[in-house]
Design a protein around this nucleic acid. Structure first.
Lengths: 207, 207
DNA sequence: ACGCGTCTTGACCATTTGATCAAGAATGAA
DNA sequence: TTCATTCTTGATCAAATGGTCAAGACGCGT
């Protein structure tokens, strides 16, 4: 009936399952080898599909990459959006930093995928950076400025402080190989979180 | 005479010139597109040589990549080696942070090349990370611990603090596209340096 | 100017890889 | 069961790309 005629592609069970399989495998492979380094065959093998079958769901390699990237981006900024001007600054920032570190530990592939994209000039997300991301950063810039004005935290350049949080927290995902090589006996996430929070926030506390 | 017999390849003028051209172009291309993404032809065109001619100087693409990477690594850690336990901690750390930022501004390609290598699992420098780099980090770890013991700076996890410096300073090179998109009117290097130094060091100052 | 060794390149090869297609297999609603 | 739709794949193609080679051009010390 309408089901087959409907322009709004209603997903069948098989479609949902396979697209999910493909996206998971693609995130792994793309984040490890980069867009050019990854091969469609690699991804197909990883999720147990044939190459033509994978290309039945995503007609071009680039379509698949774009889908993986988009899926990652949406969840990437959720913790920052939650930064609430009405709560205690140190508590809010601690929560944000720890949430970002948890994401780096739990899903380093997502962080690496994003890092790779930006590193290579952000050809697929340039619009996103100048649009939604910039808007969000400006909003949180205002939050930090208000906290400073109210004397709740010491003065700091809000934008560069956000960059610092991103840089450090994502460093533990993007440079995990280096971190693990230099931290002889692996440290517990809780230890790392405490160290990072202290480094970033001690300078902000008043008196 | 000996010149032609010598095992130690004495470079001719043309060799020096062309190898230099090739390494410069290769750094640009590799850092922009990654190892797999870069093509030998691209690099050859960029330095005005034919592909076979380039391959006359570096027989395999991987040899060229290794040469570029090695050249980059040596100069990469120079500023950290200079960290002197006998000088004032804040002055020394300020100098180090500013030196790293200067490197990011002046030669972002080198930073991106290194980031890309680590991001993809450090297949060519794993030995380097566990050897020379680890030794250097441990040495500077000791320096920071001594400063803390002497009460010259407040307590901090030295290794994670070094990671923080690396992460933030290299962020301005590796994520330059994002930074530029979010910093509407471009900021002067001096402004960024002041902001970063403040974020990293304010928490370390005593009393 | 000579001649040896260095440098350069057009043509070519083998492999990898993204993508296509026609034909057949599975699915599921009636 | 029927049959239209969806799903799957072996075979195959065209382009890109790392690398080779033989032949010739050039540099340079004598």
């Amino acid at each position: 009936m309408l089901k087959t005629k409907a322009k709004t592609a209603a997903k069948t069970r098989i479609q949902s399952e396979n697209q999910d399989l493909i996206l998971k495998a693609a995130l792994d492979v793309f984040s490890t080898y980069g867009f050019r380094g990854a091969t469609v065959d690699q991804i197909a093998v990883k999720c147990g599909l044939s190459k033509p079958n994978l290309l039945y769901y995503f007609r071009r390699k680039e379509d698949l990459y774009a889908a993986v990237l988009e899926q990652t981006l949406t969840e990437w900024l959720a913790p920052l959006r939650m930064l609430d001007v009405n709560n205690d600054p140190i508590a809010e920032l601690t929560r944000y930093i720890e949430a970002k570190l948890d994401m780096s530990f739990a899903n380093p592939a997502a962080s690496k995928l994003f890092a790779n994209e930006i590193l290579h000039g952000a050809p697929h997300v340039a619009k996103y950076l100048k649009g939604p991301l910039k808007d969000l950063v400006e909003a949180k810039n205002a939050v930090l400025r208000q906290w400073i004005t109210e004397g709740k935290i010491r003065s700091v350049d809000p934008r560069h402080f956000i960059f610092a949080i991103w840089a450090i927290t994502q460093h533990y995902a993007d440079f995990s190989v280096q971190v693990e090589a230099l931290l002889k006996p692996a440290e517990k996430p809780a230890t790392i979180k405490a160290a990072v929070v202290e480094i970033l926030l001690r300078g902000l506390k008043v008196s």
